[in-house]
């Protein structure tokens, strides 16, 4: 089971936006500390994992099987 590159990319961007928005909002005093913390704690793991899945996802559906010897 592999995730589509597009899906992984979308999750990465969404999670990153949540993290950055929460952090920026906290810096500017718009968001209370605990809300910013909860948002970051929830979004950061998804960001990290989806980022990895995004940049290693294959562009093609099914690649050529490499020659693995006789």
């Amino acid at each position: 089971m592999t995730m589509k590159k597009q899906t992984a990319g979308a999750v990465t961007v969404a999670a990153a936006m949540v993290c950055v928005a929460a952090s920026a909002g906290w810096r500017l005093g718009l968001i209370e500390t605990w809300i910013a913390i909860v948002l970051n704690v929830v979004a950061f793991p998804f960001f990290l994992v989806a980022l990895g899945l995004w940049w290693n996802a294959a562009e093609k559906e099914e690649g050529d099987t490499p020659f693995i010897g006789y």
């Binding site: 970051n40 950061f44 793991p45």
Partner: peptide, 18 residues
């Protein structure tokens, strides 16, 4: 479990920092 592992220690970091 992988996601929880990251989340759990992020929580710990913020508990410590705040």
């Amino acid at each position: 479990v992988v996601i929880i592992a990251i989340g759990v220690w992020s929580t710990a970091l913020f508990v410590l920092l705040t």
